[in-house]
Nucleic acid binder design. Structure first.
Length: 301
DNA sequence: CAAAGTTCCTGCGAGC
DNA sequence: TGCTCGCAGGAACTTT
């Protein structure tokens, strides 16, 4: 589920529910996701209050009032689900909680993948569910964001001061395909497979085109590259407004489905007509670096 | 069979 | 020739 718009949607949801609350209990139902949970994770965060929740690339940064920061990545299948005190009571059981959570299918599965439970002083709870366990959860100190191994080589935020001049510098003389470059989090962060396909389609750029062909000999961006940057930003903005996409029922923390999927022009539309006005082409699927790419060979050059 | 992500490894070719 | 670098592609993690 998670590219920038989905992570941003989750961030907003967690912000509403968590800020100002103090952690009273943290339940871990296994010792690792992609990596082991940090040593004494639960005891180190219990008693701290949530000050703010930030996003960097596809990572969530949960700031605690003691200077610690919970670093969370949703991987491919991670999600958070919030339960207010009343709902927690509804699900309350006397059974002990070991492998499965009592929230069960309320988190989208059977409870076996509810790996972390954060309980707050007002009786509410946030459950982290991640069937594939490609996600990560770590605990760092504020200020460590820039030196953490997972964060240190991240590129610019698309909603920051990112621009085509900067991108042109990064792609100058690069022979790698433009689509693979967009997925490279050192080039720009937050763009994943869906929004890379969408931005390239809207820009009329073939995903296999060599990156350097979008940069002028003098290192300045071409018009096409200007257009691509505009479209990356726009497609991400629109998706944030829509609350993300709903592939595999991606839901925000309250279970509401994002509706950006209704606006897909290329992604997951193999063999369907290209929606660009007057194009008349048919969307194809190819593979690049092991990932599916959807494109219209007629209007994407 | 495919899947929204990221990291690590191998092999190839260019250039010094 | 040998070394390094960039790059493409694949595997790995795992469950539905």
């Amino acid at each position: 589920m998670p590219e920038l718009p989905e992570v941003e949607t989750v961030r907003k949801g967690l912000e509403q529910a968590m800020i100002g609350r103090t952690l009273t209990e943290v339940i871990l139902r296994r010792e690792n996701l992609r990596f082991p949970f940090p040593e004494d994770f639960a005891s180190r965060v219990i008693g701290s209050k949530i000050d703010s929740i930030r996003r960097r690339a596809k990572y969530l940064l949960i700031d605690l009032d003691d200077g610690q920061v919970i670093l969370s990545h949703l991987g491919m299948s991670g999600r958070y689900t919030l339960f207010d005190a009343e709902k927690v009571n509804q699900f309350e059981t006397n059974g002990d909680i070991d492998r499965s959570s009592r929230f069960g299918s309320a988190t989208g599965f059977d409870g076996r993948h509810d790996h972390v439970e954060f309980r707050f002083d007002d009786g509410s709870t946030a459950v982290y569910t991640d069937p594939r366990r490609f996600g990560i959860m770590d605990l760092i100190d504020v200020g460590e964001e820039t030196i953490h191994p997972l964060l240190e080589s991240l590129g610019p935020e698309p909603f920051g001061d990112w621009n085509s001049k900067q991108l042109a510098q990064r792609l100058f003389k690069k022979t790698t395909s433009i689509k693979v470059a967009l997925l490279d989090q050192r080039v720009v962060v937050g763009v994943g497979n869906i929004y890379a396909c969408e931005a390239l389609h809207r820009s009329g750029i073939h995903p296999q085109r060599q990156s350097k062909t979008l940069v002028r000999k003098d290192g300045k961006p071409t018009k096409k590259l200007d257009l691509l940057v505009d479209n990356v930003v726009q497609v991400l903005e629109k998706a944030v407004e829509a609350g993300g996409s709903s592939l595999n029922d991606f839901a925000d923390v309250n279970g509401s489905l994002g509706y950006f999927g209704h606006q897909f022009q290329a992604y997951d539309r193999e063999d369907q007509p290209c929606l660009k006005a007057g194009c008349g082409g048919t969307i194809e699927r190819i593979t690049q670096s092991g990932r599916s790419t959807f494109l219209c060979p007629r209007c994407q050059r």
